[in-house]
Each structure stands twice: as C-alpha cells, then as structure tokens.
Design a protein around this nucleic acid. Structure first.
Lengths: 207, 207, 207, 207
DNA sequence: AGTTAAACGAGACGGTACGTCTTGTCTTAGG
DNA sequence: CCTAAGACAAGACGTACCGTCTCGTTTAACT
C-alpha cells in the first residue's frame, strides 16, 4: 500500500488565493509590460505575495506563462453552434482572434514557444496544457458535422492526423496573420478561411 | 542636394568583416543557447569584436535577430518548379520546413515576433524584411499556375487579399505545426496540406 | 512571590532534551560554518526540532550564542592551584587558550561582541553571563596570593578596579593574540605574560 | 622582455573617486546600522555607485570592512611623544580608545575577526592591513625609550616576540575592556595600564 | 608624408532582474 | 499548551546582462 490518498501533507497548506493572485498578476503585468518587461519580482509584488511563494510553485517565467495562458484558453475558447460546419469554423476563428487580440496572450504565446526551442520540458508542457486541450474543438466540430451529414462518418479507423492538420491550419493561419504578418482578423477573412477549409476537406474524403 | 553620392564619410570606414562575423556569431549563439540565453556581449566576443562595434550597427537583440533571419530567408527560400501547382506548394512547404528545422531560425522568429507585440517599429521591420519579401513566392506560384491554366487569369482587378490568405495559411500551418504543436513536417504532411489548399482554392474561383 | 512553586503550567511541558539538543547543535553548526553561515533553521534541523521550538526559547542568533558560550565557559574555566601566583596565572591563561582554540568559541565570542555594539540588552547579557561570572577567577587568585603572602592584604577598602584591570589585561591579551593577531598561545608565551603581570603588580602596591 | 611596467591596462580605467566614495559610505553605514545591518547594496547606493562597481573591487563585506578599518587606523593611530615611556604608552592607549569609541570601528573590528575564524585569507588580510602595520608603534616606542635610556639597548639579537607580547597586551586590554567588559577607558585607567606594563617590563630585562 | 576623424579593442560604469537564502511569524494537524 | 512540518512576507545576497562611457590604438581617406 503506497499510502492513504487522503493523507494530508504535514505543515501549513499552500494558499489557493496565492495561486490565483499570481496568475492574475502575471496576466496583468504581461499586458502592460510585454514579455521582456515581465519581472517575476514585480509579479509577486502585484499579487501581494513574496517572491519565494511564486518560485515555490513555478520554476520560472516560462512555466508561469504557460499556465496563465492555459487558464485563459480554457475559459475563452469554445466552438459555437452556428448551424453549419463552415459557420462553426468561422465562429471559432473569430473567438480565437479575440483572444489573440489581447496583447498579453499574443506576446506570451510567442515567447514561450520561442523559449521552448531549447527546452524539451517546456515543449511538453505547451503541448499538454495548450495544444492537446484545444484539439478537442476540432474533434467536436468534426463529430457535429458528421451528425449533420456534412461529413461522412468514420469508416473503420478514425484519422487523427487529419484533425491535427486542420488544427494547425486554422490555428496557424490565425496566429501567423496576427503576429508575423501584423494583419487583422475580421469576419470576412474568417469566412474566407472557413470556406477554403471546408471545400478543401470535401475533396479530402472524395479522393 | 545635401551631399554628392560619392561623398565618403571621413575617418576609418566600418569593417564589412565585422558585420558578417556578428551576424554569423548571432546565429551560432542563438542555435546553442536559445533566445533568453543570447547575450550581446557573448555575440561580440564570439565575433571577435568589441561590444561597441556591435551596438554601433544594431540597436539591440531584436534588430540584430531580424537581420540575421532575413539573410537566411532570402538565401534559402524559393519556389521550385515541380510541374503542377499542388507539387509546387508541397515543395515550398518542405523547403520552409527545412529552414525552420534549424533551431536558430525557429527560435529567433518566434522571439522577435513576441517582442514585436509591444514594439511598433519592430513590427514594421519584420513585415518589410520577412513578410513582404517572401510574399513574392505566392505571387510567383499563382502566376505560374495561371500560365499553366490551373487557375483562371485575373479578371480586371487582382485580389491581393487572397494572396495574403494563402501566405498566412501555408506559412502559418508550417510554423504552428513545428513550433506550437511540436510536430514534424514530412512529405506526406506537406502533400496533404497542398492538396487541401489547391482544392479549397478551386472553389474560391467558382463561387 | 509570584506563584506557588508546585503550580504546573497548563498543557504539554517543554522538553528539556530540546534545550540541550539546540545548544549542542548551535555549537556544532558554529564550528562548521562560522557565524555568518549559522542559520537558525539549520540549527533546528540538526537538533531534530522545529524552528518554532527554537524561537520559543531564544529571541535570535545572538541570545542563543551567548547562552551556548556561557555554558562552555562555566564548565571549562577554573583557576588551577600551581603553588605560586605566577604559575596560577600561567595555568589559567593556558586553560583559556584551550577553550578559545575551539573554533566555535572564538567565533561566537567575537560575533556576539560585534553585535552587542548596537544592542544594549545584548551587552548586558554578555556582561552577566560571561564577564561577571568569570571575574570570580581574578578574585580567587588574588585571595589565594594574599593567603600565601605574595600580595599584601586589603587595607581598609578593597580595589575592584584593580581586579577589573587584571581581568581585561589577561583575557584581552589572550583573545587579541588568538583572534586579531592570529598567533598561538603556548606555555612560553603564557609564562612570559604571567611574569610581566606579577612584576607589574608588585609595583602597584609599592607606590 | 615581459612588458614595460608603465604599460596602461586596456579599457577604461577604474575610477579613484569610486574607491574613496565606497570606503566612506561603508564607514558611514556601519556607524549607523551596525555590522548585521550593513548591506552592500545600501553602501553602493550611498556611494552613488553600482553594486557591480563595489564587487569589482571587494569580494564581500569582510574585505571591504578590513580596508575601511585599515584606512582609519592608518590615519588615526600614532605614538605621541609625552616625554617618558610610561606617558607615551598612556597617550597611545587613549588614542586607540578614541578610535574604538566610534561605533563603526568597534563593531567592524570584532565582526571581521569573528568571520576570520573560518576564513584563512581574511585572517591574513587582517594581519597585514591592521596588525603588522600598527606594530610599528611598539617598535617606535621601544626605540624611543632606548634612546632616552629608559630601556637597555638591544644586546645582539632583537626580541620581536617581546614586541608582539606588548602589542597584544596593550591592544588586547583596551579592546577587551571596551567591547567584552563594556567598560570605559579614561586617563586614570590608561595610566594604570601603562604603569603596570612599564614596571613589568623593567623586570623583563633584569632577569 | 602628414593630418584628420571615425572605427576599433578593451573594459569600467550605473542599472535592473535574477533566483537563492535566511529571518521570524503564522497556520495546520497531532500529542 | 507544546510540538513538527512547512508555507509565508520581507528583504539581502552575489551574478549576469544591459546599453553607455571612456580610454588608447588603428586605419583609411584627404590634404
């Protein structure tokens, strides 16, 4: 028996208020100062918390930012039911664009991805906390379209690689336009992207 | 006229070797240490140059990185002629993936984009040095496809917004897959993306 | 009388083992790490005791160190009877030197004296626990010498200032040599100091 | 040829103003806050200097304090000529007492000596900068007394061990009285110590 | 051939954030 | 009420880079 699961750890328990205050302060500071201006001592001070308390929970800027991002993504992203696959995709694109319009989101996402280039653990954390959690939107959209008869049902084996492609195309196009190209995502652009995707996918099944 | 074009500035001219050595050292250090590990003092030391010499040419990490990236993009990216639009797109995707496989490229691109979130001048520099220069590949591909008869010729007004969409979809999907999703770009994935795009575009003109 | 002696305080009584363990751990840590390396959290851990338990008994590093020192001084210092005043002084000097040879004693004594420079209460505690308790050795030595006829008996009023001078000269010379001058105290040095003092004192009474 | 001795080191030379400002600020802060309150960041700020500038010159609190003390000792300590050996000693004792009456001197001296218990290099620095430099006062006093005929001239070999003993007795008695015993050094006490020493030394040569 | 003026290397400078450490208090649960 | 465990606020530690500066030296172009 490895130990009773209800076994309380000794000593004073960690404050849940501190966790929330730190994540909120991190988002606030990020929005104001940008990534390179983000100082963990400042985040701690905004949160009304000592630096030790912050470092007890997160190893550094990167880990903290991924968790702050994941909380935002989880609460903001969803797939609206707009009646058709094309409209659903357009709606999801617009929601994502709203989220990326916040300067802290855009900046933090790019920065942690940049740091992840040298940091395998961070790469894993990003995939688990951001990518894999949001891929459920693609699965949900596909299943909804299949129920509506817009897409054929899975024949035998499902094709997760197709879901991955769709995820990277949609998310990638939005992120690239808003960050690299310094463009804007408006309803017209979202609709055009959705149409491109839906018609491209139609041939995918007819091959 | 303020001065003749052959007007040489007085004093010792700037060393061209220093420029090249600094850019090379920056790429090397970036590949080894990642963005946050990149220290300009270290770059200068690797280049065998004083910090002053570096700062005389670039204002900071961001500007230096954009220039290092632009040089790489210019010399590496091109649109191979593979006989069909779909094959051309697949080929370009694979070339871009090879470039992004270099750790310094991936890291630097994401990092400068992150910093640009708070820095309008940097955003402009990125658009001029990276985005606008590479959009010529899309224009070239479209014109080649039109000559082949794979796409209808422009009717009256051209549609630059469509070129932009294509650029963001292709580049965005590749970048997103290789950085955010931590996935790999192989010939099969490239081909599938190209097919999706070509078929999606076919309907774009038939609307 | 503030309370009946058999009055038990409510609740769990304090552990006497803890007191001893803490003092011993403090001496050990001091010998290993020196004053600035002495951390009360570490002392508590070595003593197998919680920090709370330590702080309930001592207000801080200084008070703890003074008590640890006082216990050592009380058990180690005495005036051996070597037959003559000069030999007695030499013997006491050597005993004191042995005590100061322990790194924790030397370090702690100097450190608490340094801290006492800004702390009146600590100064008082040092005088009571260390200085006044050990001045009895000077009184004892003088009385023994008077019994032997080596010194004249007190005429009318005693002269405590002379005892104080002797105390500061003997203790000061040993401490200064072993700490400030980084010298060693061997039997020859001790004998020379004793002779200097005895002959100097002879004239003191003949003035 | 290993290099001309007047060869200028490359780069910007160190500021002499900074050295002086730091030592002065250290003495000031020490007097105000005591040893444990002395923070090097604060010293740097008072000196109008960056922390790096301070750390470039001194390895830590201890080294800085020894140098600050040595400067004080050098400028304050001397052997006044009062006409007789006994009066000279009394005068020197009073001068030393004035110096140790400054809270920063007393505190810093004790503190660095405490730290030196664990630090061989610091012990050496103290001996060189403080002890050996001030022992010249003992030599000077002896030579002056020999010229006056108060002490016999050196017969054959000199006796540096006697100078050392005198130094430790005088300095030790003053330091011990003012720090450990919390006593005061007034002219009467100084005169009594001087008399004790002179008469004790008389027998030293008559043995 | 000498003069001139900027570029160059070296490295010190004032600043700022880092992540760690220690202090003394507080909050749990258990004895 | 004491105890062990450990989280907490506060703040100094010594390090690393930043971007600027101040030196003395080098180098090409212009007299």
């Amino acid at each position: 028996m490895p130990g009773p699961p209800n076994r309380r750890r000794a000593g004073r328990p960690r404050s849940a208020r501190a966790d929330r205050a730190i994540l909120a302060a991190a988002r606030e500071a990020l929005a104001e100062l940008g990534w390179s201006g983000l100082a963990l001592g400042d985040v701690a001070a905004r949160a009304g918390v000592a630096k030790t308390t912050l470092y007890r929970r997160w190893a550094g800027k990167n880990e903290l930012a991924v968790d702050a991002l994941a909380a935002l993504f989880d609460e903001q992203l969803e797939l609206p039911d707009c009646g058709s696959l094309e409209a659903d995709i357009g709606g999801a694109v617009l929601r994502f664009a709203v989220l990326l319009d916040r300067p802290e989101t855009r900046t933090a996402l790019m920065a942690v991805v940049a740091e992840a280039g040298q940091d395998e653990a961070l790469r894993l954390r990003i995939r688990e906390a951001l990518v894999d959690r949001q891929k459920k939107l693609v699965r949900l959209g596909r299943e909804r379209a299949q129920r509506r008869g817009e897409m054929p049902p899975d024949e035998g084996v499902p094709d997760p690689a197709l879901d991955d492609l769709i995820f990277d195309v949609v998310a990638g196009a939005v992120v690239h336009r808003m960050t690299v190209s310094s463009g804007t995502v408006d309803p017209a652009w979202a609709a055009r992207l959705a149409r491109l995707l839906v018609h491209g996918l139609a041939h995918e099944h007819a091959r």
